[in-house]
């Protein structure tokens, strides 16, 4: 039996059961706004792509000039002296938590940040007058400015405090080392007992060749060198000019014996 149709029948969208609604929230076409509009493709997208290329160029300069950091050794869960530091965008939360004694940590970790997150999520319903200019919405604008200033301040404090902590830790470690060896041997003594090639590398070479010997933008990698001990000693003493520029002579000034040990230590990284 065929469907009986009359004028009062409900209309549907396509072959669905969704009824056709008369009024929809279509946005105003931009031809109704004053000014010069242009099509998204290709006119606007081409300009946007040019801006993106400039951005990409700057980004790649950053990437190539600053290799991503990686520590020299894998994680050691037993290392009790390591001072933890979250990535920079979590620092403000980490710092905020420090102001709460352990019994009230739930306020610093959950309740107060959660309250701000909820305000943030519900902003369109808290700030519902039609005015859009920041100056016409003093409460919303000033609240956001205060929060942003607070985040900047907390991040700054976290960095400063972390630096102080690391310095204090290093100072106390150095003190312990001194107590363990109360009479440090003079540098020119050249005995194998007091010379630590790794420490010498960290002091004299790591700034350019990297703490993990993997090289930096300033100097090449020292891993798997195809050189003899004598050749390396010669480079340490006299410097050389290579593909990444010139290594100046005398970057490490020790005895011949110490240079030899340093060279052997470097060549042990294959």
């Amino acid at each position: 039996m065929a469907h009986e149709r009359n004028k009062n029948d409900v209309k549907y969208v396509g072959d669905s059961r969704v009824k056709v609604r008369k009024e929809k929230l279509y946005p105003k076409p931009y031809s109704e706004y004053p000014g010069k509009t242009e099509p998204f493709f290709p006119n606007f997208l081409l300009k946007e792509w040019m801006a993106a290329v400039v951005f990409l160029g700057a980004f790649m300069v950053l990437v190539v000039s600053h290799p991503a950091p990686l520590e020299a050794t894998p994680a050691d869960p037993n290392d009790t002296s390591y001072i933890p530091l979250p990535d920079w965008y979590f620092l403000f939360l980490y710092q905020f938590l420090k102001y709460f004694p352990s019994g009230t940590a739930v306020w610093g970790a959950v309740i107060i940040p959660g309250f701000f997150a909820l305000l943030f999520l519900l902003a369109p319903w808290l700030d519902r007058k039609p005015d859009r200019r920041p100056s016409k919405r003093p409460i919303a604008t000033s609240l956001m400015l205060i929060v942003v200033a607070g985040i900047v301040f907390l991040t700054y404090e976290a960095v400063v405090q972390h630096k102080a902590q690391v310095e204090a830790m290093e100072a106390s470690a150095a003190q312990h080392a001194q107590q363990a060896a109360p009479a440090p041997a003079p540098q020119d003594q050249g005995t194998t007992a007091t010379f630590d090639p790794e420490a010498a590398y960290m002091q004299s070479c790591s700034a350019c060749h990297g703490q993990d010997l993997a090289g930096t933008a300033a100097a090449p990698s020292l891993i798997a060198l195809n050189l003899t001990v004598d050749e390396v000693v010669d480079i340490i003493t006299n410097g050389r000019s290579g593909s990444q520029g010139v290594m100046p002579p005398g970057m490490f000034s020790g005895t011949e014996e110490q240079k030899k040990q340093l060279a052997e230590w470097v060549l042990s990284h294959q």
Binding site: L70, T73, A75, P77, D79, I83, D87, F90, Y94, A109
Partner: peptide, 27 residues
């Protein structure tokens, strides 16, 4: 950002994650 920070598995990654999970435990 939080989950990716652990993946290189050096001390920086390990201890940051440890602290992060301790904070999560406070909830």
């Amino acid at each position: 950002g939080f989950t990716g920070y652990l993946l290189p598995w050096d001390n920086k990654a390990y201890f940051a994650t440890k602290v992060g999970l301790q904070i999560a435990e406070v909830v």
